[in-house]
Amino acid sequence: MTAAVTAAPATTTRGVGKLSRRRSAVWLGLTPFAAYVILFLAIPAVLAVGSGFFDDKGAFTFNNLKAFADPNILGDFGATIAVSAVTAVVGAIIGAVICFALLGTKPDGLLRTIVDSASSVLAQFGGVMLAFAFIATIGSQGLITQWLVQAGLTANIFNDFNNNGTLIYQVPGLAVVYLYFQVPLMVLTFMPAMEGLKATWGEANATLGGTRFTYWTRIAMPILAPAFFGSVILLFANSFSSYATAANLIDQGGITPLDIRQQLTSETVLGVQNVAGVLAFGMVVIMIIVMVAYSALERRASRWRR
């Protein structure tokens, strides 16, 4: 006991003398990760967004922003936002209904594990393969398309959408395919909020004479609203930034990520430089707006999650 007491001050004083040097040695431990993030995240991000503001001689200019005056570029930007908004709202509603159906099932049970795993696969892994699946299903020679043709509908919604050819090779068709990763993402992000509904609230509602209808309209929906709209925003961001599925369905432009592909793989056609950088800048602006809204809603939603 005495030994420990006398030994303690000695080590402390030795520690104090070395503290500043030790401290800086510990700081050094952060440098590998910091260097990695600067080289492969900060620099590419700045280059991507910044390159739109330089001409081909390397001088700073706002001139390239004229690219947004091009009706095609602007139209595709609008189409990207429209597809993202539609798939976000529809995906969120369908996903929320699935979460509702899963309420009351055991969180550790087989059913939930299957739904979770399938959702993760579709939401994070699908991309290119989803495109294949839809070409085989509702492409021009797709199984369901051919069934409809054999049933007498030679020009049906899948092979002649809007008198413009096959549905999934057009931008509105992308919405159908996107739902196959939007709905699973909704299930993954919204389920925790749905599970936060406490049984006691339902009992309180019942003792006060409420019905199941008033339970949903007066208690559950107001509580879930911030989480729901937060998820809608997340889904919007998800389809706004997705590229792989669209790239394997549509050869030309149509949505902004595909326009960036065209700009990166071919010469500029708009008369201004670095259009890919300008489009990247435009996408980042939308994403920042979306994410600020998301974090605001997330703060409200987390209030009920304790």
Partner: peptide, 21 residues
């Protein structure tokens, strides 16, 4: 914050910066 950033920057945007890097 640093670790969440890549979610907010679409891959297709990062690609524009990755090409010179």
């Amino acid at each position: 914050f640093v670790c969440i950033i890549p979610i907010t920057i679409p891959s297709i945007v990062l690609v524009v910066g990755f090409i010179p890097v």
